[in-house]
Simulated assay, not measured.
Amino acid sequence: MLSDVSFEFETSLKELSGKLTQVETVIDLDALRAQVASLEADASKPDLWDNPEAAQKVTSQLSHKQSELRRVTELRSRFDDLGVLYELAEAEGDTASLAEAEAELANLAKDVDALEVLTLLSGEYDARNAVVTIRSEAGGVDAADWAEMLLRMYLRWSERHGYPTDVYDISYAEEAGIKSATFKVTAPYVYGTLSVESGTHRLVRISPFDNQSRRQTSFAHVEVLPEVEEVDHVDIPEKDIRVDVYRSSGPGGQSVNTTDSAVRLTHIPTGVVVSCQNEKSQLQNKVAAMKVLQARLLQRKKEEERAEMDALRDGGSSWGNQMRSYVLHPYQMVKDLRTEFEVGNPSAVLDGEIDGFLEAGIRWRKQSGAA
């Protein structure tokens, strides 16, 4: 009997080793170590905090990369220790240690699967923080209550993982619950992780607001967007600018300057044109024109980012409608309508235990090519 168990354990261990090796290859540990070393060098520069915004970005990236590296190396260390533990336990016939090894194998497999899911997050915005908005939809007061239940679910999920949250706004409904809420979750790859939650969530239960205790179906919509990174300037390469100089002119075309001091800047890639002739010298006019050009290009960039966010919002809604059903009566079940992943314990799900749904959603999106 022991030999059969041993064979099964070793087979599982071998499969897990292959999966962990594959994850390490995708992550590219050598490249990750090099990134950590480079960021550590940047973080140790004495003038780092001369630019607080840049310093914050460096320290944040360093923390994220160190955490990622530590997570992978700790899994490998646990895997190596597990093999040794099982060999010793089997040699000594220690049933307690064998049971401990079996439990660790199950936990390790779960943690490797979770890390494998992160390697599937390769979208442009996946590494960013997430901004989540929940809105009550059809269902009256039950829908408002349902929206508040979803808010608690996501905040509890964030709390379980140690992810900081910042609630930006809550609009409370008149009788109970909320009309809408918006909050940010801060963590590496949390946008990529939570983006699969976008869509309509349906709740079926006996309404606590119905004096006849009738069954009620309520709807709430979840929107997940990546946090937009703030940009306070636009770098404009000289090769992208055409500079034309001409004489300043007054009202009616009257020349007010006998030198070519007025400046016209044309941003070649976009066609944006800026002119300045108010200053006395050509250099002063060029500096002023550059400030205006930078402001216009920054506004243009913000508009493009807003359009990208709208595209993401529309994309999420299109494939995410009616994405999950939570049934509390007449039976107990939560089921994802895209992945078919389901759980028979709604209370645990509503208390933030949604990792199974997130992992299934990420794998489903990768396989189906959904945006």
Rank of each mutant, 00 (worst) to 15 (best):
V224C: 12
V224N: 11
L225F: 10
L225W: 13
L225P: 11
P226A: 06
P226M: 13
P226Y: 10
E227P: 10
E227S: 15
E227C: 11
E229W: 07
E229T: 10
E229A: 14
E229M: 08
E230D: 14
E230T: 14
V231P: 04
V231G: 03
V231N: 08
D232I: 05
D232V: 07
D232N: 12
D232E: 10
D232M: 05
H233R: 14
V234G: 10
V234P: 13
V234K: 09
I236H: 02
I236W: 04
I236V: 11
P237K: 05
P237R: 04
E238H: 12
E238W: 05
E238T: 07
E238N: 11
K239F: 07
K239Y: 05
D240E: 14
I241R: 01
I241G: 06
I241K: 03
I241Y: 04
R242N: 08
R242A: 03
R242W: 02
R242G: 02
V243H: 04
V243Q: 04
V245S: 14
V245L: 05
V245I: 07
V245D: 01
V245P: 02
Y246G: 01
R247D: 00
S248D: 00
S248R: 01
S249K: 11
S249L: 00
S249G: 03
G250R: 00
G250N: 01
G250A: 02
G252C: 01
G252Q: 07
G253N: 02
G253M: 03
G253S: 05
Q254P: 05
Q254W: 07
Q254D: 04
S255M: 00
S255K: 14
S255D: 06
V256N: 12
V256F: 05
V256E: 04
V256H: 03
N257Y: 05
T258H: 07
T258V: 13
T259H: 13
T259A: 13
T259R: 15
D260T: 08
S261K: 03
S261W: 03
S261V: 03
A262L: 12
A262G: 11
A262N: 04
V263N: 12
R264W: 12
R264T: 01
L265K: 06
T266I: 14
T266Y: 03
T266W: 08
T266G: 09
H267R: 02
H267L: 06
I268Q: 09
I268F: 10
I268T: 06
I268V: 15
P269D: 10
P269V: 03
P269K: 05
P269G: 07
T270V: 01
T270A: 10
T270W: 09
T270I: 05
G271P: 11
G271N: 09
V272I: 14
V272C: 07
V272F: 11
V272W: 07
V273R: 12
V274P: 12
V274S: 12
V274T: 09
V274G: 09
V274Q: 10
V274F: 12
S275N: 15
S275M: 13
S275Y: 01
C276D: 12
C276T: 00
C276E: 14
Q277F: 08
N278E: 15
E279F: 15
K280P: 11
K280A: 15
K280N: 13
K280I: 10
K280M: 07
